[in-house]
Design a protein around this nucleic acid. Structure first.
Lengths: 326, 326
DNA sequence: CCGGCGCATTGAAACGTTATGAGAGATTGG
DNA sequence: CCAATCTCTCATAACGTTTCAATGCGCCGG
């Protein structure tokens, strides 16, 4: 290509990168040749030479899940500002997470953003983090010495508690998602801390994290007789949907008879009738801030110790909650 | 790294690629050294040398949109089978599409999968397709000489028509999405072809493609008096949601009084009460088959002419449709 | 008129891999 | 026992950039 413009390849490089001054006429000649030939620099060669690929890898459990779509979008927004590209790897299964991370590493990414499950062995993560900058987005780890961006799950639980208590509820049924998930454990911990006091009653049903299972579990419970609770708190929106369906089917009105609160604020939450009161997960922010942290590390911030960013969450109060019946 | 194993770098290459036979003991030694050092091959160097990056680029308008999340997932599934990675570029705006495509090209992708808007100028696409294999997924183009994988929109419209006609409906209100979109035009064309006959009445309201706008437009219409139609066909699910909300608010029951049909089968469709009858878009298949076509092209299928794959769509009959009131 | 200086450009080395011709032993057939 | 063959390994040239020392050239001050 260089020859087409009548200059040396080094000069072309200077035109492209501006590392050395180039005479305006020369610049013009080079640019003309470039556009004439439809030339684009070979990224692989640049990467090889510079040792940086300008690509960051993002590992998510499932890119088809809207939540992770948001995370990916946030990460991309941040990356774009620094002219980086994002390779998204959708793991599928947890076991696959490690493989995907490794694959990305061999692809020569400059850094890794991990938004996967907390269940992945910390050893594998640590091993990889030794070789390439890594940041956790949405996941969390006590032991891993890695920057982390997470939502304030406890706060979310606490806000739900405050809202329900403020409306006058004292008896709440909790539907807990995936058992063993630290995330939902933190949410519940926050809830209990803020809600439990003399004269209140809270009980938890565990293990239901999709619409159908939650619907059937609650329906079974309702079949036993008049419920003791005036509100249901589901640790994710899908379970809340199931709960509303079960309650309606059993003849209870939401929110007049029983209030329902969800968690996540997935797209559907605001479209339901009644629109769902729920905690807004800052998914896009999680991705964006995670990527920014990662980029800071890549750009050589070895100074600061482990950074742990905790994002505040908000409660979107909609139509599915109301004061309890007297 | 090679030295650590006591062999030449060429031998390491042979161990990795199996291009030449290597003595078992040598293989063992190399592998031992590799794992001891945590060595991974430098992808950039491989790409530079081989001239193939093992990466395909996917351009979508918005990765946070669940539909495109599905497309991305399908593409990844296909890519993984051939040990390719996918870089997902989320354009944001149509104007950005071309820029993203260019960016990906300079990243040295082996091929491009374009799932973007049909509105992007065909010239820019053609220009890029001249340099790197490209396939259209979900988009379509009459003039562009490029492989294409699309859903059979006409068929979808026709299936809706057949379903409603079969139930006995003869008067249908259509809510048309984004005006000027070829996609919704094809859907409507299919609908009319199959539905229109003596004694039927179909009218179209245009320009509403989100929940709120559809809800308000329909509410305004209902306020005028008893509706002349017994069914509403929305060319996407979000408008269908809005329609159901407007109908309920106005005191009409779905489906007893008025039936509603959507299009797309987004996640929410099955969670609504009543669950929405809608056309299932094979989003994941679109991504998967598009990627497969692209990979075939990359692997050197220059033989066949332009391939155009049209995927059948299905109607998911749920609870939002019923025979009209007599 | 000449030495020195600054500017624009060049040439060559290096990045880590793959492909390939050639070499070193070991094995076989005559 | 030697030549031919086979098996494995090595050394080296690319791939397309960036980097940097070196070069050429015009211009200034002395």
């Amino acid at each position: 290509m260089a020859e087409a413009a009548g200059v040396s390849i080094g000069t072309v490089s200077n035109v492209l990168n501006g590392n050395r001054p180039v005479r305006p006429e020369t610049v013009a000649a080079v640019e003309k040749a470039m556009s004439r030939l439809g030339y684009v620099p070979n990224h692989a060669a640049t990467t090889l030479r510079k040792g940086r690929s300008q690509i960051i890898g993002l590992v998510v459990p499932d890119i088809a899940n809207p939540y992770f779509g948001e995370v990916a979008k946030g990460a991309q927004e941040a990356a774009e500002l620094h002219s980086l590209s994002v390779i998204v790897a959708s793991a599928g299964t947890t076991a696959n997470d490690a493989r995907q991370l490794l694959l990305l590493r061999s692809r020569g990414v400059d850094g890794l953003l991990y938004a996967g499950s907390e269940a992945l062995g910390e050893n594998s993560l640590a091993e990889i983090a030794r070789h390439v900058p890594m940041v956790l987005s949405g996941a969390d780890s006590e032991n891993l010495k890695v920057d982390t961006v997470v939502a304030h799950d406890q706060q979310g639980g606490a806000k739900v508690a405050a809202h329900l208590a403020g409306l006058g509820h004292r008896n709440v049924l909790v539907l807990e998602g995936k058992v063993g998930s630290w995330t939902s454990a933190r949410r519940l911990h926050g809830f209990h801390q803020a809600f439990d006091k003399a004269g209140t009653r809270v009980e938890t049903m565990r293990g239901y994290f999709l619409v159908e299972a939650a619907r059937e579990a609650l329906a079974a419970d309702l079949a036993k007789g008049k419920p003791w609770y005036t509100a249901v708190f589901a640790t994710n929106d899908l379970m809340a949907v199931g709960a509303i369906q079960a309650l309606s089917a059993a003849g209870y009105r939401v929110p007049e008879d029983i209030s329902v609160v969800g968690y996540d604020d997935v797209l559907i939450a605001s479209m339901l009738r009644p629109a769902l009161t729920t905690v807004v997960q800052p998914a896009r922010q999680l991705g964006k801030l995670g990527a920014e942290r990662l980029i800071a590390r890549i750009k050589g911030d070895r100074a600061s110790g482990r950074v742990r960013l905790v994002l505040d969450v908000d409660l979107a109060v909609r139509a599915s909650t109301a004061p309890p019946r007297r």
